[in-house]
Structure formats: C-alpha cells, structure tokens
Write a protein that binds this DNA or RNA. Structure first.
Lengths: 325, 325
DNA sequence: CGGGCCGAGGACAGAACCTGTCCTCATCGC
DNA sequence: GCGATGAGGACAGGTTCTGTCCTCGGCCCG
C-alpha cells in the first residue's frame, strides 16, 4: 500500500512531465503490469484528476486541467525557477496576487533542499536588483511575516517612522496587503492596543516570531480599502500632470491604463495624471515615447528633468548636428 | 487504500500550510485517530519527507527540507502567483534557470483549471509589459516549444530573418538556450537537413506540433557554448564604451557585475564596457546614477543622448535656476 | 515531584485492499 | 482485417489498514 501511494505520485509526475503516455510505456517505467496501470489511472480519476484516453494507434493517456490543481512535482531547476519567479513578483507586486505569492514562496522555502539554497540566494539578489524602482522590500521580511500570519504568532521588529526614527514594535500580524506599489502589514499593536498599518519597506529587521495569539475580529472586511483609507497622504511622493503632444488614441496604446489617467486636450494633445515615488524612471519613460511633452506639475519634476537633460547633454559631448524627430 | 493515498496528500498539504501541527490537531482535521496520524507520519518519513517532532507542551510536527522536494500543494491564488512569477522569469531570463522556468510553466499551464485562465491571461500581459526592455518573447511561444521538445515532436512556425523576410520552418526542436539576454532554439531543420539555431523572438507564430521524431545525437555537449559560437555577430546591437567620473569601487557597488565590464581609469574615473540592444534604458540608468559620464562609443548612443536631453530640456520648460549636483 | 501535554510504537481482531493472471470487448489508423 | 491502443470483470493468494488498548519517554509548569 505504501508502495502504491508512492507509485501514484510517480505516475502523476510522469503525466506532468510529458503530455502523452501509453499504458505499456507507463507499465514499463513503473515496473508493474498494464492492468495495474489501468487501475492506478482509475484511482487518480477517482481522486479528481482528469485523465483523458484515446485508443488505437497514437493513443494513450493525457493529464488535463480539472476543477482542482494537482500536486506539482518539480525537479531541482524547476523549483529554483519557481522560487526566483515568486521572488520577482514579491519585489514588484502584481495587483491581486501579491499576498499569495508571498505565501507560496514561504511554503517553498520551507522545503527547499539545502543543496539549492546557495544558488537561490545568489539568483535572488540578482532578481531583486532588477526589479522596477519602487520602494524595495526584502523578500525575507515578507516571508517571515507571512509565516507569522499563518501560524498566528506575535512578531517583533524594528520599524522606521517617516521622520526617520526607529522603534521596536510587538504586534499581532493579520494581513499583508499589496497596493500595487507598496506592501503594508495590517496588525494589532500590543503596546498601543490598537490597529496599525505598517509599511513593510520601513521594517528595519527581520520580524522574529514570539508567542501565539488568539485572533481578534478584523477592523474591516475589505482590508485593501481599509489600508487605502489609513494612508493619510497621497500614496505617492509626486502627483504629476503632464501634457503630451499627441492624441489620446495614440497615447492609450502605449501607456497602460492602470498607471495613468489620460484626458484629451484637443486632437493633438493629451493630459496625463499619475503619481510617482521617484522621478527618474517616469521621466525616462516619457522621454522614450518620442513624443514632445511638457511638465505642468510638479516643479520638482521639472528641476529633475533639467538636471538629467544637462547630464545627458554633457555625456553626448561633441555631437555634431542633432536632428529633431 | 485509495482513501489513504488521498489522506497522505492532505496531510502533506497541511504540513506545508503551517509550520507546526500537533497530532491531535491533525487527527481532528483529517477525521482519523491519533494513532493513524502517527502511522501516516511514519509513512511520509519512509517516503523521504523529513518530519521532525517535539514532545510536550508547544510540541508537534514540522515538515523540513530534505534531500528531495515534496509535491507542492497550492491553492488557486498561489498557483496564479507561481504562473505569473515564472512568466516574469521567462520574459527576463536569469542565467541558468531559463529553460527550467519554461518547463515548469508548461507543466503548470497544462493543469491550470479553466476558471483561472482568464485571470492568468490578464495578469500575464501586465508582467510581460513590465519586463526589462530586451527583445520581447511571447511566453506562449516558449511553452509551445518546451512541450514539443519534451514530447519529441516536429514543430512548424513562421520565422523572420534578420533582413525582415519571413519563411515557414519545419524543425525537430532539441533545446531552448537562454544566453541571459535572448532565447535561442537549437533544432534540426528537416528541409535543409542541418542544425540551425533560431532566435525565439523572431518566431512569428505559435509553433504547432506535428509528427513525432526519433532523437539524433546533439551537435555539441555544451549547447550554450555551441549557441554562442553560432552567433556570427555580437549578440548586441550596440557595444558601448563609457567613461564614468567616479572611482571603480563606487561604481562596482551600483552596477551588477554580470551587466558590464569595469576598468579603473585613475582614482576618480572608471571605464565601463557593455553591450545593449536598445539605448534608452541604459541611458536612463546611467543618467540616474547621478555621476557625470561621457559616451566614448558608439556614436549612435551620443546622438540618442542628445535627443533625449533636448526633449527633457523642453519638457522642463521655464525652469528657473538649475543647480548642478 | 506530579500532572498534563505532547510524540513513539507494539499487539490484536476484523475488515479491506492489492497484484498478477486471464479474459472479453471497444476504438482507432493504416 | 490487423495490430496497437484503452476498458474493466473475476479469481486466488497475499498484504495492508484501522481502531482500540497499552506502555514508554520527553518537556514544561506549578
């Protein structure tokens, strides 16, 4: 029987590895008779895994997509790839799957064989460095928080406030919320005895787990909305208004709707409104559009644009004639 | 017995979900006696999964990292996160795990429940758009090729040559090679009856599988090196030489070693050599360093820097005094 | 030190399941 | 029609599983 459980997993692994298998091939691979293979296939079907079959020449079995996801059986390199991919997603959260990616990464790290850890560490820093220039978060902070949330453990960490001063916090962590730009932790502050929303990028130490706690009712059902309300200021350092010298139709095709709000300003001009945490990246993206643009707000963005312009001009050195596009 | 296989997977799932479980909690969750839980734990141990135990108050079981990776049991959101993460890695390959990430993504897509596919499609295009601006590759092309490689199926696709003309190809695909910047396919061309190395970003249709083929000996044991040799020209559109006005120690800390070759040019200057496929992104990154720099080569990069400088200058408009840093 | 909470594992009875072997039937492509 | 595929019942001989009961050991706390 124990041999059967192992064999069923092996069968599942083979079906994931290649799309099509014949009964005789599976029987040989698993060292049982074809009758037993047919029985095992039936068992997997009973367990809910949809395996289709076609008889005759070029026939065989195929594992398809069913109502539930089967256990994923990965080899070493595949596991590393998954870990790296999840790390990339946590570094630049994609709306809606942020917390799930941290949870999945926590699961994977728990069981990652020791021989793969050095490679993972090396590749991890490469991915973190390549992430889009928003506020950087240490993946280790995220996974530590995720584990504490799952296991209902109080965590201690050093937290830096907006004025730069850091203090020690002891909290019951409940939820990680990703706003698409930043990670927040919704937690009950055990010292202040009230709910607090923490910016994860301001966490200055790896949260260390303490005693268990009993869950209390959450402060809201929609925690993403709750976090948005908790943020007393604009989530961005800069709220920009930019006039682009191209019609809105053209601009819509080149700038994702989630990033900016676009308003038509006549047949050949578009007003773009968006928030940014830093200026360099958006400035260079705007310059790369090869569309003339004008910064209406904020002043700081105009100053920065002039600085970058100067540096690029000097870097170009003794270029002869510049042809305007 | 069938019930036992399912129960073992369920137990594994619980152990992955939370770090610590007591026997009584597991027994209640799975609706068996504690004695059966102890037996099941023993079975998982026999299967190779290292489960540690601590007796007494605050005791329990913990699934640890062993010699092999256990089957991963994920919920819907976690599966989506994994899929998105793998898509991100295939879009910007991290050296060494590129092919594995495609293989893993192919496995996952095969079993992804239908109800998750629309969400996956939506999130996938978001990730692809955010990828670093190297040569874009459709993830669907990669996974179709990976499946064909695994199943030894000839594939047909339209391929665009460097002169822009596209033709139909019928090939035996053997390996996907990621050079860190681009994807290549090593394949046997059935029409020309010779080995060919294809750039995946030039594949203009989703490869469709045809008949099976019998594997032939590969043209080399080290296919990454083979691909590098096959590329008759520099892999990059531009080979740049840039002089930075800062010491090499400072620059090394801010520019990843894999991206550029750095040479000291005195105590306050550094020569940077690197290849690029486009100019805007590197120019943006260089300008953002807040270090004066000079483009020694190529001329095209100087021209582009001047263009961007002009556009940024005009965008800054009537800025008053510009303070040099 | 005792009590309670945890994990460990042997022994037994009654029940359930597993595998190979053999067989008949159906579908598919050439 | 033939050969290659999948489907599944029946049987004999053997194996495994579960709950129940029990003893033992470690850990923490009052």
């Amino acid at each position: 029987m124990l041999e059967t459980s192992a064999r069923l997993l092996h069968l599942l692994s083979l079906l994931q590895m290649r799309r099509e298998w014949t009964g005789p091939a599976l029987a040989q691979r698993m060292e049982v008779t074809e009758r037993t293979v047919r029985r095992d296939i039936g068992k997997l079907r009973t367990l809910g895994y949809p395996i289709s079959a076609s008889p005759g020449i070029a026939g065989g079995y195929q594992l398809g997509a069913g109502a539930q996801l089967p256990p994923l059986l990965l080899d070493d390199d595949e596991a590393l790839a998954v870990a790296i991919g999840l790390t990339a997603v946590t570094a630049s959260p994609v709306a809606g799957v942020g917390e799930a990616s941290v949870r999945a990464l926590t699961k994977l790290e728990q069981v990652l064989p020791a021989r793969l850890r050095p490679r993972f560490s090396g590749l991890r820093s490469a991915v973190t460095r390549m992430a889009a220039p928003s506020t950087p978060v240490d993946p280790a902070v995220l996974t530590a928080l995720s584990a504490a949330i799952t296991e209902r453990r109080i965590v201690a960490f050093r937290y830096e406030r907006h004025d730069g001063e850091s203090s020690r916090r002891l909290v019951e962590p409940y939820r990680l919320v990703d706003t698409g730009r930043r990670w927040y932790l919704v937690a009950w502050d055990t010292v202040r005895e009230d709910w607090r929303t923490f910016r994860v990028d301001r966490c200055r130490s790896i949260p260390s787990p303490r005693a268990r706690f009993t869950a209390r009712p959450l402060p809201a059902t929609d925690l993403a909305r709750y976090v948005q309300k908790s943020i007393t200021r604009s989530p961005y350092s800069y709220d920009a208004v930019i006039r682009l010298s191209a019609g809105i139709r053209e601009i819509e095709q080149r700038i994702p709707a989630e990033i900016a709000e676009l308003t038509s300003d006549g047949p050949d001009a578009t007003i773009l409104r968006a928030g940014f945490d830093s200026l360099d990246y958006p400035l260079m993206q705007l310059a790369s559009l090869d569309v003339e643009f004008e910064i209406l707000e904020p002043e700081a963005m105009r100053v920065r644009a002039a600085e970058l312009a100067g540096r690029l001009r000097r870097a170009a050195g003794g270029t002869g004639t510049v042809y305007a596009r």
